[in-house]
């Protein structure tokens, strides 16, 4: 069988229609997890099958696709997913955040602010923010339906009681439009504020768990906290990017030698490269 044997963007049209229905429902009820009939994809569960299905359902031939993992365009899984869509959809690809119409991401939101008309597709491993408080799906669905979120707050209370602060660095839970508690996927909490009132459409796909959820443009997204322990989108203090000198971006720590030497560089490779280019121009 050759690649031409597959439909545009791999999935057959009936499957895409099913996905789009789920996406529409998700957009209509921001933060609500819509069950969908996830397909087996040619990459393993947990490697972005949900995001890939959502992207496949959104793509049209005119789209320009950007794929990042850990903020970077050239991490292996990002490369793999981008080449998958180049092969099965033939769409243009880019590394420039501003030029992309669809961006599939794992674990980051780009530093460059998104604009209206863009779609950001998140890969989600565990869509249920209550999962580790209550393992049962039947029970967590009832908890969401009844807005029974006391237990979630207890978890944060326990963090402060034990550690003096909310000890969650990523996948930091948010409340959407004052209603549903949502897992923003394992983005660092540094990225949480970017979810709020974003002009872009944000879609979340969890393939193995068969759930899709969404944040329509300009949706209110608040990170859970206490009045006297407000949410802070922190990152390593006092470090700038060693490559581009950016002070306000999220940084990866890179170990440079076996003597404990380290440096900090932007996790968003496009943002970093663009800044370097601009500086040398």
């Amino acid at each position: 069988m050759t690649d031409q044997a597959y439909n545009f963007a791999y999935l057959d049209e009936a499957t895409k229609r099913m996905l789009r229905r789920a996406l529409l429902k998700a957009v209509a009820i921001p933060g609500y997890q819509v069950p969908f009939s996830s397909r087996e994809m040619p990459m393993p569960y947990g490697w972005g099958t949900g995001g890939v299905q959502v992207t496949a359902a959104c793509l049209v031939p005119e789209d320009t696709l950007k794929v990042i993992d850990q903020g970077a365009d050239d991490t292996t899984n990002a490369v793999s997913i981008r080449s998958f869509f180049e092969k099965v959809a033939g769409v243009a690809t880019t590394e420039a955040t501003a030029e992309a119409s669809v961006i599939q991401t794992r674990h980051r939101i780009p530093e460059t602010p998104l604009h209206a008309g863009q779609i950001l597709v998140f890969q989600v491993p565990i869509p249920e923010p209550l999962r580790f408080l209550e393992p049962r799906e039947t029970e967590t669905r009832v908890m969401h339906a009844l807005e029974d979120y006391g237990l979630m707050q207890v978890r944060l209370y326990e963090d402060i009681a034990r550690h003096g602060e909310i000890a969650r660095a990523y996948a930091y839970p948010v409340k959407v439009e004052g209603r549903y508690v949502m897992d923003p996927s394992p983005i660092p909490k540094f990225d949480n504020p970017k979810l709020n009132m974003s002009p872009a459409l944000q879609l979340f796909g969890a393939g193995r768990e068969c759930r899709i959820y969404a944040l329509p443009p300009f949706t209110r997204v608040e990170s859970l906290d206490f009045e006297d322990y407000p949410f802070t989108p922190s990152k390593a203090a006092g470090q700038d990017c060693a490559i581009c000198g950016a002070s306000g971006s999220y940084l990866d720590e890179v170990i440079t030698d076996d003597a404990g030497g380290r440096m900090f560089v932007c996790s968003d490779t496009d943002y970093c490269a663009t800044r370097v280019q601009e500086a040398s121009a």
């Binding site: 393993p44 569960y45 947990g46 850990q70 899984n77 674990h107 980051r108 660095a169 394992p186 720590e253």
Partner: peptide, 21 residues
């Protein structure tokens, strides 16, 4: 197996966040 093996994928960002915490 997919989910188990996905922990081989890079988690620099999450780990960095944990490291700082």
């Amino acid at each position: 197996s997919g989910f188990l093996e996905h922990i081989k994928l890079p988690h620099y960002v999450d780990f960095q966040a944990e490291l700082e915490l």
